[in-house]
Computed example of a mutant assay.
Amino acid sequence: MFTGIIQALGTVKPLEGDSWQITCVTQPYNVIMQDLATGDSIAVDGICLTVEKILKDGFIATASPETLRRTTLGQEETQQRYVNLEASLKVGGKVGGHFVMGHVDGMGQLVSAQATLSSWEMIFTAPDAIARYIVPKGSIAINGISLTVADYQPELSQFKVAVIPLTYTETNLQYISPGGWVNLEGDILGKYVEKYLSVGNQDVKQTTQTIPNDITPAFLVEHGYL
């Protein structure tokens, strides 16, 4: 589990098979490397990867074919730009953003990025798999960054976020051009609510179907109710 607060920038390099080398480039990068151990989880552009081998300034991890298909890690342009890095949340640690699982739901594209007096206003597209979890003032993870939805236009399948200068300059949002792809993860709370409502509605329908339309005294006697 992560919080969407980026701790460092890195680069990714494909190795043989499904292995990837992730190198920290932010100095100092002790926040990522100081307690890193084999088997730890690291969010790489919002993708939860498991550390298999520790290097001097990074680590090696494996990305499954499903991960490559669903995320930007499988795109060549990602291998030529910086990625956001965040170590997993420790018990007792600060939750500065929101609960981010590192399970990317799909990809969106940057539509535009405009600087204002106090922030960067960025508009992204969102496929249906993510759009149903987007609500104004709700949380969303973009390349692993915890951000708040400022506006949502369902007819265009687009949403807007306001990014403060600190977040913009310390993450890879500054390197993404219009048309560039990003990883999106919807708020886990929305997913559980959706599941609960879906199962709840099914239970109600099933219960309703087992109740006769007309319960009469004769019906009760027939079924043992005296």
Rank of each mutant, 00 (worst) to 15 (best):
G190K: 08
S118Y: 08
P165D: 00
L184K: 05
L110W: 02
S118L: 11
Q206R: 11
G224Q: 10
P212N: 05
R69P: 00
D151I: 01
L156V: 03
L147Y: 04
R69E: 14
R81P: 04
M33R: 10
Q21P: 01
H103F: 09
T23Q: 12
S139K: 04
L36A: 11
Y29T: 05
A63M: 09
I145L: 02
Y225A: 08
T23E: 14
S88N: 07
P65Y: 06
A131L: 15
L9P: 01
R69C: 09
P212W: 03
H223C: 02
D203W: 14
V91F: 11
S64P: 03
Q79D: 06
T67Q: 13
V193W: 05
I54F: 06
T208E: 13
L85W: 04
Q80V: 03
I140D: 00
T208A: 15
Q174G: 06
N143D: 15
Q174D: 07
P127T: 05
D35E: 14
Y133R: 00
V31R: 11
H98C: 07
D203S: 12
F219G: 07
K137L: 11
T210D: 09
I123Q: 12
W120I: 00
G17Y: 09
N183F: 09
E66Y: 09
A162F: 08
G144M: 03
V149D: 00
Y133M: 08
T167P: 02
V135H: 03
E16S: 13
P165F: 02
L36K: 05
T71K: 06
A63K: 01
P212Q: 05
W181F: 14
K56H: 09
T62R: 14
L85V: 05
E194R: 10
D187I: 07
D40P: 02
I6K: 03
A129C: 13
K94T: 12
I176S: 03
V182A: 07
E86Q: 09
K53A: 12
Y82I: 03
A87Y: 04
N172M: 11
K90N: 09
S139T: 09
T207W: 12
G93P: 01
G4E: 06
Q21D: 08
E77R: 12
F124Y: 13
H103T: 04
D151W: 02
I130T: 13
A87H: 09
Q79M: 12
N84M: 04
Y225R: 10
E121M: 03
D40A: 12
A87P: 01
A43I: 08
S112T: 12
I215Q: 09
S157Y: 07
G93L: 04
Y29L: 00
Y133E: 08
P178G: 05
L184F: 08
Y225H: 12
V221A: 14
G102D: 02
T169D: 14
S19M: 13
I130M: 11
